[in-house]
């Protein structure tokens, strides 16, 4: 093939990997557990789907060890959708990530929603051509993941709860510290790096640009169009909606409304219009009601 003879052609660069995250901005990434849900998500205007065996709400209820999904199930979803397909690997489980890359998934989520496989180490994400997204509760965690090669950061929130409070806390923490760092002087940046347990070079870069190095998305507990718009107004660049769609009474119109709310996140009149008559959202649970905290996973 003549294309492969082009000496300048390179795949899997940081620019190519971060670039897909740029393309997903201003959109909604939806958790789906089968081909039928994937079609509903794409029809509603999702920019990508996250293929997984059980949504976080069910993982919370079922307990036990949560692992990478069956490749057959992921391929079933790839077969019916034209939008990017993401899938989750356990924290530190680089073999699950190798398998997902071989399936041709478009993004790997090294996710705290699954049971961690390594209590100390995350995956070396530079070793892969497929890009990775990782969760973070604060800026230090975000920068440690970026230093390992993550090309997109999402707030962890508290997945499967339908409760947006943790996602808001994590976004405010990450973006608030970025704002403070832009005010710090050179000497204070050393202290910031120490406090965040993050590489100094990344902290210095943030001081200069005022922005995280990779796109920052919001995930964990979003259930309504207003939740999505809240995340966007706080400074998230896209939203992940997991259990919030397919655990609600009527998923298709809710999915479409959340897509509309994410595009028009500053327009209260449009938000009011799309929030009407959607049926019951997922019931949701309060923090600490089930004693299970995904946000503590990740190091």
């Amino acid at each position: 093939m003549s294309e492969t003879s082009d000496q300048t052609r390179v795949a899997g660069t940081q620019r190519v990997k971060r670039g897909l995250a740029e393309m997903l901005k201003g959109g909604v990434i939806m958790d789906v557990v089968n081909a039928e849900q994937a079609k509903i998500a794409e029809d509603a205007g999702a920019v990508a789907v996250m293929a997984l065996e059980r949504v976080p709400a069910d993982i919370r209820v079922d307990g036990g060890v949560a692992r990478m999904s069956d490749p057959e199930m992921i391929e079933g979803i790839q077969a019916v959708t034209t939008i990017p397909v993401m899938a989750k690997a356990r924290i530190g489980h680089f073999v699950e990530a190798q398998i997902l890359q071989s399936l041709g998934v478009d993004y790997v989520d090294e996710s705290e929603v699954l049971t961690p496989a390594d209590e100390t180490h995350h995956i070396d994400k530079f070793a892969f051509d497929v890009p990775f997204v990782c969760g973070a509760t604060n800026l230090g965690e975000a920068l440690r993941r970026i230093s390992e090669g993550a090309c997109m950061i999402r707030s962890k929130g508290e997945a499967g709860t339908g409760n947006v409070v943790q996602a808001v806390r994590h976004l405010r923490s990450i973006l608030g510290d970025i704002r403070k760092i832009t005010q710090a002087d050179e000497a204070e940046l050393f202290e910031w790096a120490k406090r965040l347990q993050a590489p100094l070079s990344l902290v210095q870069e943030i001081a200069e640009t005022g922005k995280l190095q990779v796109p920052l998305f919001c995930a964990g507990g979003l259930a309504t169009p207003a939740d999505a718009a809240l995340a966007m107004q706080l400074g998230a660049e896209s939203v992940f909606v997991g259990s919030g769609i397919f655990k609600s009474e009527d998923p298709a119109p809710r999915a479409k409304a959340i897509v509309e709310a994410t595009t028009n996140f500053r327009d209260a009149a449009i938000l009011a219009k799309v929030s009407r008559g959607l049926g019951a959202p997922m019931t949701g649970i309060g923090m600490d009601e089930d004693g299970l905290s995904f946000e503590d996973r990740g190091w």
């Binding site: 300048t8 390179v10 795949a11 899997g12 620019r15 670039g19 990017p84 041709g104």
Partner: peptide
């Protein structure tokens, strides 16, 4: 798919410098 995404040099008319296209 994304795994096939790439960057490459692109000759632009009237310029000796290629454009790095993603």
């Amino acid at each position: 798919r994304q795994i096939d995404s790439f960057e490459a040099d692109l000759p632009l008319e009237g310029s000796d410098d290629p454009f790095r296209a993603v």
